[in-house]
Amino acid sequence: MNTALRLVMAALITMAIVACQPKPKPTEEVPPGSETTTEGAAVEGAPDPRDYTDARNFDNPESLLSKRVVYFDFDKSTVRAEYRGIVAAHAAYLAAHAAGRVTLEGHTDERGTREYNLGLGERRGNAVMGLMSAQGARGDQLVVVSYGEERPVCRVSDESCWAENRRVEIVYTAR
């Protein structure tokens, strides 16, 4: 094999590796340096998805820590049973990581007035905060910000879309 061909192959392999890198999810806010390296994962193996104190589980689709949105019923702020596990997982992480900080962003669908929805979004954020606090997260680790109906993820005026917009996003500002 001549040198030129070797160089071309090396270039192709490099490109293939770059192309295979997982794209960062735009909704996740991960501070620089906190991401686990692929070599580390390869050496130690996949983390136990039920170990909610393990930061690697933030990117492990098997783990509840990778889920960071809680959805609500119309005009309600009760955390439904199916989302309690997610809330508990993040509470466990925060309890184990004193430096961890979370903003609970409360959102609503477009029905109802904008200022009332600011109140409703805050109620949802507070409901998640209350559960997390009861499960070991400290008050100074949690901040609720309500966006009301101002930051929809879906813009069609129907129930499937409204259901996606009625949510609390668990956003880590520090892990």
Partner: peptide, 9 residues
């Protein structure tokens, strides 16, 4: 104005 510093609006 509406303020929720007391815990609710």
């Amino acid at each position: 104005l509406t303020l929720s510093r007391s815990g609710n609006p």
